[in-house]
């Protein structure tokens, strides 16, 4: 293997990343401001609130929902939601009989434009190794007990395909506005490890 003469693994990741950033800046390949911008975008701007807008629109606009389920990339684009890792998105719809949940068994593929970066558990060995073989057990660990007659479909993400779960609209929300609906939609419900809980209108 090449590079063993200069093995950096004895150092902690913080020191190695700092050195790498510094080195790449000196080579003129990146700049600090650009790195800061990316961090800020993924910490504060690109996240599950985007996906929640998509879900709320789908709940209130049947034509949009149809477009979302046939071409999620184009439908999200209508709401101005696009970006890295957003080119191969597919939306899958939960119904009273079908529950969808998403995993990436190999690493961490995830639809960034609508959900941001994945949570720690999504990238964990425990979730990745069990979601396909024991989805019901995993959902139970998340506190979601599904009736036996509900079919669970597990979608394994890849470079070619990322998934957004369109959760069921909770009962009692008939008079909610689109914004009020969006506020109910959680990240976990769009990964498919939770349902959207009904909430009282204030």
């Amino acid at each position: 293997m090449s590079g063993n003469h200069h093995d950096t693994s004895e150092h902690g990741p913080a020191a190695r990343v700092k050195a790498l950033e510094q080195l790449l800046i000196e080579k003129g390949l990146i700049d600090s401001a650009g790195i800061d911008q990316i961090v800020d975008a993924y910490e504060n701007k690109i996240g599950p609130r985007n996906g929640a807008r998509v879900v709320a629109r789908a709940w209130t606009d049947p034509a949009f929902k149809k477009r979302l389920l046939t071409d999620a990339v184009a439908a999200c684009g209508e709401l101005g939601i696009a970006g890295p890792e957003g080119g191969h998105m597919v939306a899958v719809e939960n119904t009273p009989r079908v529950h969808n949940m998403v995993v990436c068994t190999l690493c961490s593929c995830y639809p960034w434009p609508v959900l941001g970066l994945p949570p720690v558990w999504y990238k964990s060995f425990a979730y990745r190794s069990r979601a396909v073989s024991d989805p019901r057990g995993v959902l139970r660990d998340f506190g979601l007990e599904l009736p036996d007659d509900v079919e669970i479909r597990v979608w394994d993400s890849s470079a070619e395909q990322r998934y957004l779960v369109l959760p069921e609209r909770p009962p009692g929300t008939e008079n909610f506005t689109e914004d009020e609906l969006a506020a109910l939609v959680t990240r976990d419900s769009m990964i498919g490890v939770a349902k959207v809980a009904p909430a009282k209108k204030q």
Binding site: L24, I30, D36, V39, Y42
Partner: peptide, 10 residues
Amino acid sequence: ARAFAIALGL
């Protein structure tokens, strides 16, 4: 965060 941003930036 820095590692992620460096990878995406490159």
